[in-house]
């Protein structure tokens, strides 16, 4: 129980860090990057890595099967490989479509792993890992095409406007579902405690 509590605190901590970094990134870090490096793509690239690490860590902690955890660690290597390839083949002052595309595919894959585990163990759908996976599926499915096409079209004003809209809507949906997930896990925990006290 204590382990679960500690695990949950870490997960909420990582989520809080991600949300804070995301807000800070939109408000300051992108502008700082533009000011000091004359391109905001440095901040974008850093954000991609942080986002991938945060989500992968949360999913890793949500998985209980050692086999699935090993698959997650092994497939994460592809993400870092994609960063190296992108740095070698693409200008650093350009949108990192390859790493973000690989990130989207990998996170979607991890979400399917999570859902597979949750369903095969017969756990309820109103739990944090399931709702977290649903929120990530919606976000990364919604932004997948956007990230893939950004490398060649980011300078296009119309595309740039659409980028902001799509990312904003996807993020709102994702955050809402994550919040529901946290609330659902709290509710389940309270119910379990009550049942435990009764018995």
């Amino acid at each position: 129980m204590l382990l679960f509590q500690r695990n949950k605190t870490i997960l909420v901590g990582v989520l809080f860090f991600y949300c804070s970094y995301s807000i800070l990134s939109d408000l300051f870090i992108n502008k700082l990057s533009l000011k000091f490096f004359e391109s905001e793509f440095y901040a974008y690239r850093l954000f991609t890595v942080i986002e991938f690490l945060c989500f992968s860590f949360i999913i890793y902690k949500s998985l209980s099967s050692i086999r699935l955890r090993k698959i997650l660690i092994f497939s994460s290597l592809f993400f870092f490989l994609s960063i190296i390839i992108d740095l070698l083949t693409n200008s650093i002052e350009n949108f990192d479509s390859l790493p973000t595309g690989v990130e989207s595919i990998l996170i979607l894959f991890y979400c399917i792993l999570t859902l597979y585990e949750q369903i095969s163990t017969g756990k309820p759908l109103y739990s944090f890992p399931v709702l977290f996976a649903f929120s990530l599926i919606l976000f990364f499915a919604g932004t997948f095409f956007l990230f893939i096409m950004s490398q060649n079209n980011f300078e296009n004003e119309e595309f740039s406007n659409l980028y902001d809209y799509i990312v904003a809507i996807s993020k709102i949906l994702m955050t809402l579902l994550m919040s529901v997930g946290i609330l659902a896990s709290r509710k389940t925990e309270t119910q379990n405690n009550r049942t435990f006290q009764k018995t």
């Binding site: 499915a141 997948f144 095409f145 096409m149 595309f159 659409l162």
Partner: peptide, 15 residues
């Protein structure tokens, strides 16, 4: 430009 937006919207919607 509009073609790119169209593709983007369609792709996003599809996903």
């Amino acid at each position: 430009a509009s073609n790119v937006s169209y593709v983007l919207l369609l792709g996003t919607l599809g996903m």
